[in-house]
Design a protein around this nucleic acid. Sequence first.
DNA 1: CCGAGATTGTACCGATCGGTACAGCAAGTC
DNA 2: GACTTGCTGTACCGATCGGTACAATCTCGG
Lengths: 188, 188
Amino acid sequence: MVKPVVDRADLLPRLAEVFRSHGYEGATLALISQATGLGKGSLYHFFPGGKAQMAAEVLAGIDSWFEANIFAPLRTSDDPARAVAAMVGAVDSYFQSGHRMCLVGVIALGASRDIFAEQVQDYFRRWNDALALVLRRSGLSASVARRRSADALVTIQGALVLARALDDSRVFGQAMAEMTTRLLAKPD
Amino acid sequence: MVKPVVDRADLLPRLAEVFRSHGYEGATLALISQATGLGKGSLYHFFPGGKAQMAAEVLAGIDSWFEANIFAPLRTSDDPARAVAAMVGAVDSYFQSGHRMCLVGVIALGASRDIFAEQVQDYFRRWNDALALVLRRSGLSASVARRRSADALVTIQGALVLARALDDSRVFGQAMAEMTTRLLAKPD
DNA sequence: CCGAGATTGTACCGATCGGTACAGCAAGTC
DNA sequence: GACTTGCTGTACCGATCGGTACAATCTCGG
């Protein structure tokens, strides 16, 4: 028995969890209905656009969460080491130390990739830009900063995949730790 | 028009490509039929177990390819630097410089994860063991060797995800290059 | 207490899902 | 040329897919 949802704000996180753990195609309306406690009638009342709209709004919600809690802090920080540490902390808590998947990554790999390609690219690009900016500010050259920030995104996504595949969240923690020292290392 | 397949050996790669680009749930029998040029009758003649058997045999095929071309060379090499370079080269060519996805990773993220959990874990664990072994032989301590090999697997998976998400295979190439230098670096 | 709008459950739609049954066909063997 | 054996196309199955229609209900200002 799932407690029914009252408003849209409560709805999005539940939808997100369904898409996360089943993928876009795997998230059937039956599953969504069960996870939210809402019948199809209500679901289509809130999202006349159906599954596609649900996923799009979930993605937008995730995007704005990252914008507020990760990207913006990176951009505005004047203490790169602190900013990177804060990012890693936020990432670790958001992904529950590797137990939770990255929906953006999941969608990028799925068959629905083309539908959401723009949002996916935007998400990773803005993250990459924000991280490169703060690294730049720490004294790295533009090219090194961009290389390191891309490496960080690669590591985060890969760590999530491997933690899930091996069903072992320790690889995520280990990867985050090494990634942090790599980000903050002196320019080579 | 797809040229019909003659025997099972030709069949598996085509099946693999379908699962790769659509995921397990996204790979419908209609898609499989189209990609192989075989009707359902033939498909179920070769694979009485249906989709699950197809995917299992595809996974087994991939596993044995990696065993022969990646894992075994790592294990038997007495020149770690050469072995690592060979692995990176083989990985780059197998994944077509980031254009091709890793089916094992795709399955690990999908809803069908539980069905193939054992094969997935086995694949990554054997890769990790083989790579750690050769790193060990290069003079690294056991713990450092394992850390670095896990980092390499993380990087490969992450690079594939990000290359796909950004639709830019350069991030894959860049990540492979950095990973190689990290693998072959002197013990910290 | 009433009416209006928001919300809901349910019946239903055509399409497609994975899978089965089976008749037909090709090719070799005796 | 009969007979087996391997392969193939096709019709069909029940279940489920995403989505629609709509009447019943709830909520709340007036």
